[in-house]
């Protein structure tokens, strides 16, 4: 008897569109925030354009598709991972307008008009970003599943904090989790990358 149990974003958007039928405070706020006559996206798939790694990418996705799923399943950019699926672990981290975001917690349609940088745009095995290089040199990866998120979060952090202390690193990268236990390497990598990004003007 579970057919009505699941709460879908489709229902959410429909509810919001007709003025908060579901009646929660959140939905009422969303409805109030929407300008009169605003176009309602969905519930079916809609064409969207995302700016990913500097290039426009046209997709057709349902409005409830998250940015991480759009990247992984529609664009085949699989560096960012979906792990906790609810904004806890940071494995899905990408940069949006230069800031780290959990891409599992951003809808793809809401990422339109914003500059999205994924790990694929930031670095490559042939031309490693200093953060990737520092992760390699300090062995800041084991299974590697969290590593993409950590590398992107580290770049986002260092862009805003070019001279971090180790305590700053512990705080700034506290939004990413690793199960293999690579934190010692990550701490050293972040501090090394900070030096190299300044020295090499490579950020």
């Amino acid at each position: 008897m579970s057919s009505k149990k699941g709460f879908s974003r489709r229902g959410f958007l429909q509810g919001a569109g007709v003025g908060g039928v579901l009646g929660t405070g959140l939905l009422e706020r969303e409805a109030e925030a929407a300008p009169a006559g605003a176009a309602i996206a969905g519930p079916g798939a809609v064409p969207i354009t995302l700016t990913i790694n500097g290039k426009p990418v046209n997709l057709t996705v349902e409005p409830r598709v998250t940015l991480i799923d759009a990247l992984r399943d529609y664009v085949d950019l699989t560096g960012a991972k979906r792990v906790c699926d609810r904004g806890t672990c940071g494995a899905c981290t990408v940069l949006m307008n230069g800031k780290s975001v959990y891409s599992c917690s951003v809808l793809a349609i809401d990422a339109q008009g914003k500059s999205i940088e994924t790990i694929e745009g930031m670095t490559s095995p042939e031309k490693m970003h200093p953060v990737s290089q520092a992760f390699w040199e300090n062995d800041a990866q084991q299974c590697g599943y969290c590593t993409s998120g950590f590398v992107v979060a580290c770049k986002g952090f260092l862009d805003e904090h070019p001279n971090p202390t180790e305590e700053d690193v512990k705080h700034g990268l506290g939004g990413n989790l690793c199960r293999c236990g690579t934190y010692m390497g990550v701490r050293a990598a972040a501090l090394q990358a900070a030096k190299q990004m300044k020295g090499g003007k490579n950020g």
Partner: peptide
């Protein structure tokens, strides 16, 4: 020796089963 799969892991290019399509 630095781990040989470090570059693909630290650049998001390592393909896991869950990345397979």
């Amino acid at each position: 020796v630095k781990r040989l799969d470090g570059p693909v892991k630290a650049t998001g290019r390592a393909k896991y089963a869950s990345d397979t399509k």
